[in-house]
Computed example of a mutant assay.
Amino acid sequence: MHLADVKDYLAADFPQVFGSGSIAVEAAEGGVATLALTPGEAHLRPGGIVSGPTLMMLADAAAYAALLSLTGEAKMAVTTNLNISFLRAGAAGAPIRMVARVVKPGRRLSVIVAEAFSGEALLAHCTMTYAMPATDATVVS
């Protein structure tokens, strides 16, 4: 899928994530995607820092966009594992950029690495595994 197709698909099928306009798909090509978020009140935990679930959601969305940029068949892919290491706190109102890259595209499992940045500071590092949709040849009865 091309960038415009990825944006249109995510906005239409995931309005709960992409409908508010707070998350922007900046790039999605060749297995690499970049999403941007300026955290608002709904993304913060006590102390005014960006919550872990916000960074996990952003990583998962960026990984999905990266997979979609390889093939539209990834629409039915699902997250089977997500491991995240939080390295620094993200501040309220400071833009966050999540860059995801498919490191192992597979027929059954794909592995994606994503990193969250605020400016040049690395906030989080994430690895994910996605189960790819079964084709007629891979369906096991």
Score class of each variant (00 low, 15 high):
Gly31Gln: 14
Gly30Tyr: 06
Thr71Glu: 08
Ala77Asn: 02
Ala12Val: 00
Pro15Arg: 07
Thr34Ile: 15
Tyr64Pro: 09
Thr135Lys: 09
Lys104Asp: 12
Arg107Leu: 10
Ala65Leu: 05
Glu120Gly: 00
Ile23His: 07
Pro95Met: 13
Arg107Thr: 08
Pro39Asn: 14
Val6Arg: 02
Ala100Asn: 10
Tyr64Asn: 09
Leu67Lys: 05
Asp60His: 05
Val102Gln: 08
Phe117Ser: 00
Gly52Lys: 15
Gly31Tyr: 13
Phe86Cys: 06
Pro15Gln: 01
Ala28Lys: 07
Ser69Leu: 07
Leu58His: 11
Ala89His: 09
Ala36Thr: 12
Ser20Ala: 12
Pro105Ala: 11
Ile23Gly: 04
Leu10Trp: 12
Asp13Arg: 15
Val139Gln: 10
Leu123Cys: 01
His43Ala: 13
Val78Thr: 12
Leu3Asn: 02
Thr79Cys: 12
Ser110Asp: 08
Tyr9Arg: 06
Gly47His: 08
Glu73His: 10
Ala114Gln: 03
Leu35Ile: 04
Thr135Ile: 03
Gly19Val: 08
Ser22Glu: 14
Val78Arg: 14
Val113Gln: 14
Gly93Thr: 06
Ala124Asp: 06
Ala11Asn: 04
Leu123Arg: 00
Pro46Asp: 12
Tyr9Asp: 00
Val140Tyr: 03
Val32Asp: 05
Arg88Ile: 01
Gly52Asp: 15
Glu115Gln: 15
Leu70Tyr: 13
Ala92Cys: 05
Asp8Leu: 09
Gly106Pro: 06
Ile112Lys: 02
Ala94Pro: 00
Leu70Asn: 12
Gly119Ala: 03
Ser69Met: 07
Ala12Met: 01
Ala62Thr: 06
Ala12Thr: 04
Lys104Ala: 13
Ala12Phe: 00
Ala134Arg: 15
Glu115Gly: 00
Thr34Glu: 15
Leu10Tyr: 06
Asp60Tyr: 11
Met76Leu: 15
Ala27Asp: 04
Ala137Met: 03
Ala114His: 03
His2Val: 07
Val78Trp: 06
Ser51Gln: 15
Ile84His: 03
Gly72Val: 09
Thr80Phe: 03
Ala42Ile: 13
Asp5Leu: 03
Glu41Ile: 04
Leu122Ala: 01
Val139Arg: 15
Leu3Ile: 04
Ala114Thr: 06
Leu68Lys: 08
Leu123Glu: 01
Ala131Asp: 00
Leu82Gln: 11
Arg108Glu: 11
Ala94Lys: 09
Ala27Cys: 01
Glu26His: 08
His2Ala: 04
Gly48Tyr: 03
Asp136Ala: 15
Lys75Arg: 15
Ala74Lys: 12
Ser22Asp: 15
Met1Ser: 08
Thr38Asn: 13
Leu68Asp: 07
Met56Asp: 10
Ala63Thr: 04
Met56Lys: 01
Gly52Val: 11
Pro95Trp: 13
Leu10Gly: 03
Ala33Leu: 04
Ala28Thr: 05
Leu44Gly: 11
Arg107Gly: 09
Lys7Gly: 00
Val17Ile: 14
Pro39Ser: 14
Gln16Arg: 12
Leu68Ser: 11
Val139His: 03
Gln16Trp: 05
Met132Ser: 02
Val17Ala: 10
Val17Phe: 07
Leu109Arg: 08
Phe86Trp: 12
Leu58Thr: 11
Val139Tyr: 03
Tyr130Pro: 02
Ser22Ile: 05
Ala89Lys: 13
Ser22Trp: 05
Ala74Ile: 06
Ser51Asn: 15
Val111Tyr: 10
